[in-house]
């Protein structure tokens, strides 16, 4: 769904030339962000909560995520056992749902961040490089990007995992590959606009090396679209991973993952609806947090929108 914004972002991003360097102090930034972007701030909080869940999962969760308790299969929320209380109930293998949701945050964020960071960074390098060198390189590169962009995101991801088998590595690869051209395109159009600015010419005239021009002048100037794409990718990657796992093509048992939990839960939705409710809430909330935050980030980094406020 971000394809939309991306396509339009192409035109818009040409005008994005914000500079991240001269900013007031951190605390002041946060408070002013919270005041100006209450929704974005809420998103940030949600994101931080999920990050904490993922990082501190072993200390926060009451059970081992893969430990089956066959005496307590599909127990309703609040069931108590010798080992403790299953606050959100148990799944078909008698594993604690709360624990698996907390550990599921690990899987989701691991996939989300890896795909987003790798995808966006590779996209950044390719996009800036393509814009900087221009000419034939740019042309060939654009055609290759076009080819990859011709596949809808899920079609490409699905084909990759269906063919190569489903493991967490393949899921990450499957999601990352289609991200690359999407980021590269947006970054390239921003970088192209910067290349036309006289100071790049000046830098060239001064005999600065290509790498110096790229690193010192071009990359910092495309940070805004890069960061916007990156945050958008995290949410998308989480959703895609959940979709693939739901289709049975993503993460595999016994690894705790939200989409996989939903897939199994669907079988028991008649008798034990709770196991289908919690993972759905977790996915929605997680993606929601990243989207809110990303949206606010876009507003904050896009000078045109900012001047409008």
């Amino acid at each position: 769904m971000v394809t939309v914004s991306e396509n339009l972002a192409d035109a818009k991003n040409a005008e994005l030339q914000d500079d991240l360097r001269d900013r007031p102090g951190l605390w002041k930034q946060i408070t002013s962000f919270a005041r100006k972007q209450p929704l974005g701030f809420a998103g940030l909080i949600v994101v931080l909560v999920f990050i904490c869940l993922a990082v501190f999962a072993p200390w926060l969760s009451p059970f081992d995520p893969e430990a089956s308790s066959y005496e307590h299969m599909l127990a309703p929320p609040g069931t108590t056992s010798d080992a403790g209380t299953f606050y959100l109930g148990t799944d078909d293998f008698g594993r604690d749902v709360l624990t698996r949701i907390i550990y599921g945050a690990r899987t989701a964020l691991f996939v989300g961040f890896t795909c987003a960071i790798v995808g966006a960074t590779v996209g950044l390098v390719l996009g800036v490089g393509s814009a900087f060198f221009g000419g034939k390189i740019d042309l060939i590169f654009q055609r290759i990007m076009d080819i990859f962009m011709a596949f809808p995101l899920i079609i490409m991801a699905l084909s990759i995992v269906a063919i190569f088998g489903s493991s967490i590595q393949n899921v990450i690869i499957a999601i990352t590959i289609p991200f690359i051209p999407r980021c590269a395109r947006v970054v390239r159009s921003s970088a192209l606009a910067i290349r036309e600015i006289p100071y790049i010419d000046a830098a060239r005239a001064n005999g600065f090396s290509n790498s110096r021009i790229i690193m010192r002048h071009m990359v910092p100037n495309v940070m805004a679209p890069f960061l916007i794409m990156l945050t958008a990718f995290v949410g998308q990657a989480i959703l895609l991973e959940a979709s693939l796992s739901f289709l049975g093509l993503g993460v595999q048992e016994p690894v705790p993952a939200w989409g996989l939990m939903l897939k199994n839960a669907q079988e028991y939705i008649r008798s034990e609806p709770w196991i289908a409710i919690w993972p759905g809430i977790a996915i929605t909330l997680g993606v929601f947090g990243f989207n809110l935050f990303g949206d606010a980030l876009r507003d904050a980094l896009d000078p045109r929108l900012r001047s409008n406020q």
Partner: peptide
């Protein structure tokens, strides 16, 4: 069908 599905169907 697995037993859980049987039970759910019989129940409703």
């Amino acid at each position: 069908f697995p037993p859980k599905q049987r039970d759910a169907l019989v129940k409703v």
